[in-house]
Simulated assay, not measured.
Amino acid sequence: MQNLQFERAWDKTISEKDRERINNVFLKTNSSTNRGIQFTPLWQAVNHKSELLVTTLIQNFSEQTLIFNNRKLLYFKNNKLIAEHIFSIPNLLVERNTSIPWTFIFPVNSVLQQADLLNGYIEMDGKNN
């Protein structure tokens, strides 16, 4: 059975509205027949530094812990690559059968082209699994 967890800093600071939104997305998507890793989109934004912020629900349906050590993530919109970046996040571990919300920050130099911030999605580059 899939479990929803919030990283400690998230748990302390997230608004009730956002927590409810994440819970609703989790309830709709937690019974995947996929046994791998899925990134369920939540929302996207651009910050004051023009970095792309992509908040997603990382869903580990596998039997192994997911560690973000040199993981290349790709951000797509309409099947078109918008940004790519290699992430090393030591404190982000996603245990097996666990879902965790997280915001990935794509630096300006990793954004290949601008796109509206609707309906984008993240995939993990299979070459670095």
Rank of each mutant, 00 (worst) to 15 (best):
Q5T: 14
Q5H: 12
K12G: 03
T13D: 04
K17L: 09
K17W: 08
E20A: 14
V25F: 01
N30F: 08
N30R: 14
S32H: 06
S32V: 01
R35A: 11
G36K: 07
G36A: 08
Q38T: 10
A45N: 11
A45T: 13
N47G: 03
H48P: 00
K49A: 15
K49T: 12
S50M: 11
E51I: 06
L52K: 06
L52R: 12
T55I: 02
T55R: 05
S62H: 09
T65C: 08
I67Y: 13
F68C: 03
R71W: 05
K72A: 08
L74T: 05
L74C: 06
Y75H: 07
N78F: 07
N78R: 08
K80H: 13
L81E: 05
I82Q: 06
F87Y: 11
S88E: 09
S88T: 15
P90L: 04
V94H: 03
E95T: 07
N97S: 12
N97V: 03
T98P: 02
S99D: 05
I100C: 11
P101E: 05
F106Y: 14
P107F: 04
N109C: 00
V111Y: 03
V111N: 05
Q113V: 11
Q114F: 11
A115S: 15
A115E: 07
G120L: 02
Y121N: 07
E123Q: 12
D125M: 06
D125Y: 09
